[in-house]
């Protein structure tokens, strides 16, 4: 690179080098970001392609036949639905109230810092440890046996910390001035929460809870030893085949079973099960994300 003496701020070799490093770095980082997206699409395409011979409406609504080597996944699908609804019916109220406590009532003292630490810790407990806990506490100590309710309780405790965290975030995003305005009219703390804080954060709270639907639906280890079973005879089209103390089939467990435990399964069945499981999870997540984006754009403050 030649430098003209007349122009003081010309392009020096140093600038050329730094620009070159800059564009190289940008390409490397872009490639890395893309490298994370490519697998997602590759995986979805591959699974759908391999599953295509089995994918149909009948696959979803039929019961398994010939020892799960053929037929559909209805009992597992409805079992997962039961587990998810029940576990979130337990964890959502507790989680939301805990978040209200942490965000609206708690002062910054050692005790509340301890609660925060507990929440963080609970979120990091491995799923198999949750399974051991569910087995020890709900199945044996509480004598619930291997049942829908024991599995749901285990899942509820697993989803709790994330619901607390996301609800807290939603509550914290309501500006302090809103609360102050309400307090100034003479409202109590709870009246303020009910009339001002919750209506302004309910969408954020809901998004957090919806995201946990997919988490609860996908987990296998915690329900494997607390209530999920390989196979259970269920009549076709039955919407409430499981009682609270019955063992249940679940999609995630069913996928594990047909993929590793049952010999001579029709080739496309595990793939189709995986597609249904992943499809429902991604669908739920995508709708939560859409809801969030939509509400963020609508937000006035």
């Amino acid at each position: 690179m030649h430098i003209t003496t007349g122009v003081k701020f010309g392009v020096t070799s140093h600038v050329v080098r730094k620009e070159r490093a800059q564009s190289a770095a940008q390409w490397v980082f872009r490639a890395m970001a893309l490298a994370m997206i490519v697998p997602l699409f590759a995986i979805i395409t591959y699974l759908v392609y391999r599953a295509s011979p089995s994918l149909s409406w009948e696959f979803l609504v039929e019961v398994p036949r010939r020892g799960m080597r053929d037929g559909g996944i209805w009992p597992a699908f409805i079992g997962t639905l039961n587990l998810v609804v029940l576990s979130l019916a337990i964890s959502a109220p507790i989680g939301i109230m805990a978040a209200i406590y942490l965000n609206e009532y708690a002062r910054d003292n050692w005790f509340n810092r301890l609660i925060n630490l507990a929440v963080i810790n609970l979120a990091g407990v491995p799923s198999i440890v949750h399974a051991l806990f569910g087995l020890g506490a709900f199945v044996y100590a509480a004598q619930l046996g291997y049942s829908l309710i024991a599995a749901s309780l285990t899942l509820a405790i697993m989803t709790l910390p994330v619901i607390i965290a996301s609800t807290r975030e939603a509550l914290a995003s309501v500006p302090m001035a809103f609360r102050e305005a309400c307090w100034n009219t003479g409202a109590t703390r709870w009246q303020t929460i009910r009339a001002v804080v919750l209506p302004n954060s309910i969408s954020g709270i809901l998004t957090g809870v919806i995201l946990q639907v997919s988490r609860a639906a996908g987990e296998t280890a915690p329900i494997m030893f607390t209530g999920a079973v390989f196979y259970k005879a269920v009549k076709q089209g039955d919407f409430f085949p499981y009682g609270l103390t019955d063992q249940v089939m679940a999609l995630s467990m069913h996928l594990y079973t047909v993929a590793t435990q049952v010999p001579n399964v029709k080739e496309s069945i595990p793939y189709a099960t995986a597609v249904v499981l992943m499809g429902s999870v991604l669908l739920v997540n995508a709708s939560a994300i859409t809801l969030r984006v939509y509400l963020r754009n609508k937000k006035k403050w």
Binding site: I43, S127, S214, E219, L255, L277, M278, V281, L282
Partner: peptide, 9 residues
């Protein structure tokens, strides 16, 4: 979405 894929999948 990548984070949402269940571990069994």
């Amino acid at each position: 979405l990548l984070a949402a894929i269940p571990s069994v999948v």
